[in-house]
Simulated assay, not measured.
Amino acid sequence: MHSLTLELDNRTEVAAALAGDRWIVACLCAAWCGTCESYRAAFDALAARHPDKVFVWIDIEDQADVVGDLDVENFPTLLLQHGETVAFFGTVLPDPAVADRMVQAQQAVPDAEQARLAQSSDERRQWQRECNLRTLLRNAG
């Protein structure tokens, strides 16, 4: 399975895909970004290697009403979420091997430990309040 692209006309479908217990891996980028453009094929290949997870490509300008308040400092920015717990939010090197290792490492952490880590620092608590993709989609206009 390739990644989904969040569009104005498929938000309901994407929200449905994000429901359940699968891991969510979202890439936040921008159409004008050359790095993002070249990273897209690698992100799709990563999605194909992890068919048990939902991969979502989000253009932060086209989907500003969904993710506009997120602090995206550089591209690509990845968001990894399991259930309602945001496990990671931040800029990563545009290297698919780095993203693959990150996805595998996060998946290996037991749920109870993920929950503990989610509350372990101010930054991680902020991720829980502000970066939950399911909540962001529900609250979008």
Rank of each mutant, 00 (worst) to 15 (best):
W127N: 06
L136C: 07
F55D: 08
L18D: 03
Q104V: 12
F89E: 05
R40G: 08
H82G: 14
G83C: 07
A108T: 07
R11S: 00
F55K: 00
D9V: 06
V54R: 03
Y39I: 03
V56Q: 02
A16R: 13
V72D: 00
E130Q: 15
T135M: 14
R11A: 04
G68H: 05
C36T: 01
V25H: 02
A45G: 11
A45M: 04
V25I: 06
V25K: 01
A99C: 13
L6P: 01
T35K: 09
R11Y: 03
R116Q: 15
T35E: 09
A118Q: 12
V56P: 00
A47I: 01
G34R: 03
V14Q: 03
C27Q: 11
D100K: 07
T85V: 13
V103N: 01
G141N: 10
F55M: 02
A48G: 10
D111P: 04
Y39Q: 09
R129A: 15
S38Y: 06
F75D: 01
W127C: 04
G90T: 09
L117S: 13
A97W: 01
R22Q: 07
D111Q: 13
L117C: 09
E7P: 02
L28H: 05
V109E: 11
E61A: 12
E7F: 06
L18Y: 02
T91P: 01
T135Q: 14
A31E: 14
W57I: 01
R134T: 06
F75N: 05
